[in-house]
Computed example of a mutant assay.
Amino acid sequence: MRASDRAYATLLDEIQTGSLAPGAVLGEVEQAARLGVSRTPLREALSRLAADGLAVQQSPRVTVVAAIDQDDIHELFEVRRALEETAARLAALRGDAAAFAALAEEFSHVSLGAEPERDAYYALIARFDALLDAAVENDYLTAALRNVRTHLVRVRRLARDNPARLVASAREHRLIAVAISTRNADLAAHATHVHLHNALDSILESLKGAS
């Protein structure tokens, strides 16, 4: 792995997990020394983060982690709805019905009590997303979805875990998977719309409670 790729991957993970909070200064000298790379690959990594919308250059010498507020979250979900509802429709027409049926069964039996179980649930969602991406057979759409998900990880980390919301989310994912497995494109898109509406409401309520 190139030094710039390694620096980018580390900084991306730290921004997504909240180790580098919004507004944190990404000083070239300090970050290069911390990550064990020279300043040239670090600059490349910072440029990629800026292109992703995760870092902002406040001045020629100062780069900071981008802030994220309720307006950003609303805009993110506007794009997410358009992309994911389209993806669900296409997956219902093109996807592996048996594979989505198997995922629906897994969503029916998730446990969300302990942290390892929640981690397993998020891994299940990641598998669902990967299967959805493969099903749509559209590189432009999946590239746009990957960019949205990069920001979505930050949003989820900023919001607090809500056990009731996680249970509801599992039910919603199950319905989407069932709709895709039965080739019901309208239901797949509608179920995705409802899921994203509920997810946005929960995230905004969580952030409100944390403020």
Rank of each mutant, 00 (worst) to 15 (best):
E205G: 09
Y121M: 02
F77S: 06
R81F: 12
A177F: 02
M1Y: 07
E44R: 11
P116A: 10
L54T: 08
A101C: 03
N198D: 13
L204Q: 12
S169I: 00
Y8T: 02
L207E: 13
L12K: 14
V110G: 11
Y140P: 00
A32C: 06
S59P: 04
L152P: 11
D139H: 06
L76R: 06
A87N: 07
D13K: 11
R6K: 11
A164E: 15
L12A: 12
Q31E: 15
A32L: 04
G53P: 04
D139N: 07
L145H: 07
N162A: 13
L103R: 02
R118F: 10
I125P: 07
V178S: 02
Y122C: 02
L11T: 02
A199F: 05
R94M: 09
V79Y: 06
S202M: 05
V79K: 08
L166K: 05
A114Y: 08
L131Y: 00
T17Y: 00
A82F: 08
R80H: 11
E85M: 14
F128N: 06
T86M: 14
E78V: 03
L166N: 10
D201K: 07
E115T: 04
D96W: 00
H74A: 09
A120E: 11
A126M: 00
T63H: 04
E105W: 04
T142S: 13
I68S: 14
D186F: 05
E115Y: 11
G53K: 02
S19I: 01
S59N: 03
R80Q: 14
Y8H: 13
N184H: 10
L124S: 13
L12S: 13
N184G: 05
T17N: 15
L42P: 13
A55P: 07
A55K: 04
T150A: 15
R183I: 01
V153L: 12
A45G: 08
L20S: 04
R149P: 06
E105A: 14
E84W: 08
S211L: 13
R149N: 15
R2V: 02
A99M: 00
Y122I: 03
D13I: 00
V65Q: 13
R118I: 15
R89Q: 13
L26F: 05
N184L: 06
G23L: 03
A7V: 03
R171G: 12
A126N: 07
G27Y: 08
A45C: 06
R160L: 11
R160E: 15
E84I: 03
V148I: 11
S19M: 02
R157T: 12
S211N: 11
L196E: 14
R146Y: 07
A82H: 09
G95D: 03
A189K: 06
A87I: 04
L187K: 09
L166E: 12
G18C: 02
A210M: 08
D139Q: 12
D96Y: 00
A3V: 00
L112C: 10
V62N: 08
A66C: 06
I125G: 09
D52P: 07
R39N: 10
A188W: 02
A51L: 11
P22H: 09
G113D: 15
A170L: 04
A134R: 09
